[in-house]
């Protein structure tokens, strides 16, 4: 068990081990969705919300169900089912109770089940043996970091519309290069905290 302060962990998961820029997780929707700032922000909020709660749920499932029954190897199936079930549940509740929120997040929720960042955070939590409080901090921080990266990329992409990009680089290529430059920038934070 590592005794990292949850606040340190929170900051670290935003800056130094950002889900996208350091761990490459959630790239698929990152590249596909990051077209304008508003959509990116919506997706980011949905990811943060789901990430925080599924991390806690998966922690409890792993700690109190899988470990006592010696079924650790089933964690992939259990985690992915709990994520899918949670997303479905949230979608139903939000649709009934909070139509305003549903309007904002609705279209993003189904996308989230297959977002590798969600499953990735749960798996990291198991491998690094976080406690419950640390898991909450890590899940929430990762979501915030993910949102920040995707919103920043959407802003940069807007500028790209007016610039002349070599033909073969258009689309995925230039997005990867921009992300690489962002990762380079974020490496400047790496002196602050290290968690892995």
């Amino acid at each position: 068990m590592n005794g990292l302060n949850p606040f340190v962990l929170f900051a670290a998961s935003i800056f130094t081990s950002n889900m996208i820029l350091a761990n490459f997780l959630g790239m698929c929707s990152f590249i596909a969705v990051s077209k304008d700032i508003k959509t990116s922000l919506g997706l980011g909020q949905a990811v943060t919300f789901v990430l925080t709660f599924t991390t806690v749920i998966n922690y409890l499932l792993y700690r109190y169900v899988l470990i006592p029954m010696n079924l650790e190897y089933l964690r992939y199936i259990v985690f992915i089912i709990s994520i899918a079930a949670f997303v479905q549940l949230v979608e139903m509740i939000v649709e009934r109770q909070l139509p305003v929120l549903h309007h904002a997040l609705g279209i993003f929720l189904p996308l989230i089940t297959v977002n590798c960042a969600i499953l990735g955070v749960s798996l990291f939590m198991v491998i690094r043996k976080y406690s419950l409080v640390q898991s909450v901090a890590f899940g929430f921080g990762s979501g915030v970091g993910w949102t920040m990266a995707i919103v920043a990329l959407a802003g940069l992409k807007k500028r790209l519309n007016e610039s002349r990009v070599p033909k073969g680089l258009r689309g995925a290529g230039i997005t990867l290069i921009i992300t690489g430059l962002m990762a380079l920038g974020f490496m400047g934070f790496s002196g602050m905290v290290q968690i892995s």
Binding site: L21, A22, F24, P166, G168, L169, A172, G173, I174, L176, I177, T179, G180, L181, A183, L184, M187
Partner: peptide, 14 residues
């Protein structure tokens, strides 16, 4: 490091 991965893959795509 991570940036190298992004740059390399971008070059391959290009």
């Amino acid at each position: 490091m991570p940036p190298g991965a992004f740059f390399m893959l971008a070059l391959v795509v290009w």
